[in-house]
Amino acid sequence: MEPGSVENLSIVYRSRDFLVVNKHWDVRIDSKTWRETVTLQKQLRHRFPELADPDTYYGFRFCHQLDFSTSGALCVALNKAAAGSAYKCFKERRVTKAYLALVRGHVQESRMTISYAIGKSSVEGRAHTMCIEGTPGCENPKPSLTELIVLEHGLYAGDPVSKVLLQPLTGRTHQLRVHCSALSHPVVGDLTYGQGGGREEQPFRMMLHALYLRVPTGAECVEACTPDPFVPTLDACWSPHTLVHPLNKLIQALQTAPDPEPTVGPPPCSPAAPRPADLETEAQRTSCLQWLLEWTMEPDS
Score class of each variant (00 low, 15 high):
residue 2 E to D: 10
residue 2 E to I: 02
residue 4 G to Q: 08
residue 10 S to Y: 05
residue 19 L to H: 01
residue 22 N to Y: 04
residue 22 N to V: 08
residue 23 K to L: 09
residue 29 I to W: 01
residue 30 D to H: 09
residue 30 D to R: 05
residue 42 K to N: 10
residue 46 H to W: 10
residue 48 F to C: 05
residue 58 Y to F: 12
residue 69 S to D: 14
residue 75 C to T: 09
residue 80 K to W: 13
residue 80 K to F: 11
residue 83 A to Y: 02
residue 86 A to I: 07
residue 87 Y to C: 06
residue 90 F to H: 03
residue 91 K to R: 15
residue 107 V to Y: 02
residue 111 R to G: 12
residue 111 R to P: 08
residue 114 I to P: 07
residue 117 A to H: 15
residue 122 S to D: 07
residue 122 S to Q: 09
residue 131 C to D: 15
residue 138 C to W: 10
residue 138 C to V: 08
residue 146 T to H: 00
residue 146 T to N: 00
residue 153 H to D: 02
residue 167 Q to C: 05
residue 168 P to V: 01
residue 179 H to Y: 00
residue 180 C to K: 04
residue 185 H to W: 03
residue 186 P to S: 03
residue 190 D to Q: 13
residue 201 E to L: 13
residue 203 P to H: 03
residue 213 L to K: 01
residue 220 E to A: 01
residue 225 C to M: 11
residue 227 P to M: 00
residue 229 P to K: 11
residue 231 V to S: 04
residue 232 P to L: 07
residue 237 C to G: 14
residue 240 P to V: 03
residue 244 V to S: 02
residue 256 T to N: 15
residue 259 D to C: 04
residue 269 C to D: 09
residue 275 R to H: 12
residue 279 L to S: 07
residue 280 E to C: 14
residue 290 Q to Y: 12
residue 301 S to I: 09
